[in-house]
Structure formats: structure tokens, C-alpha cells
Amino acid sequence: MEVRCALCGKKEIITDAHKDYEKLEKNPNSTYFCDLCLAKLQYDALEYNKPKKPIG
């Protein structure tokens, strides 16, 4: 199945062994993120939620 990343637009071919294959097969309109964009989103979320250092 050919899918396109919702963030970067990169096209990928995924097989039935891929973790999102069943979700995308049932609903082709669901959002897909490539591994690189998913890692960046997770990193950004962790950085955003870190406690802020006090100015002092």
C-alpha cells in the first residue's frame, strides 16, 4: 500500500507487517506519519514538557 506522510509529504510503500497497515486499510483517510516525522514530533513534545530552568 502506498501512503503519504501528513507532515513532510514523503511517499512510502508499507506492507502488512507495518504497525499502521490495518488502520490505514480500514480507513484510507486516516493520518499517516513517517518514522522520521514521528520521532521529531515525539522529541518536540518531550522538549516542550520539560520543566523550565529558573532564571537566576
Rank of each mutant, 00 (worst) to 15 (best):
M1A: 05
D16V: 04
V3Y: 02
L46Y: 02
I14A: 01
N27V: 01
L24H: 06
S30L: 04
D35N: 15
N27R: 11
D16I: 01
M1D: 03
A45F: 06
R4N: 01
K53G: 02
L36D: 15
A17L: 11
A39H: 09
K11E: 10
I13A: 14
H18T: 05
L38N: 13
L36M: 11
E12P: 00
V3M: 04
G56A: 04
E2V: 01
Y43W: 04
H18W: 08
E25T: 13
L38R: 14
A45Y: 03
K40E: 14
C5G: 06
L7D: 15
K40T: 07
A6F: 11
M1L: 09
P54F: 11
C37D: 08
A17T: 12
L41G: 04
T15V: 00
Q42I: 13
I55Y: 10
L46M: 08
N49Y: 13
Y32E: 07
Y32P: 02
I13D: 11
M1Y: 05
Y21T: 00
K53P: 06
C34G: 11
P51N: 07
L38E: 15
H18C: 08
E12G: 01
Q42N: 15
L38Q: 12
I55S: 12
D20M: 10
E25A: 15
L36V: 14
D16F: 09
D44M: 01
L24T: 09
G56C: 01
S30I: 08
D20L: 05
Y21K: 00
Y32V: 03
E47Y: 11
E25C: 08
K52T: 09
I13Q: 10
P54W: 05
C8Y: 02
K10V: 12
A45V: 05
D35W: 12
L36E: 15
F33H: 12
E25L: 15
P51H: 05
E12W: 05
K10N: 03
Y32S: 05
K10L: 07
E2R: 09
K26F: 07
S30D: 15
H18D: 09
C37P: 04
L36I: 15
G9D: 04
C34L: 09
C5Q: 07
L7F: 11
P51V: 10
P51M: 00
K23C: 00
L41F: 06
E2D: 06
A45R: 02
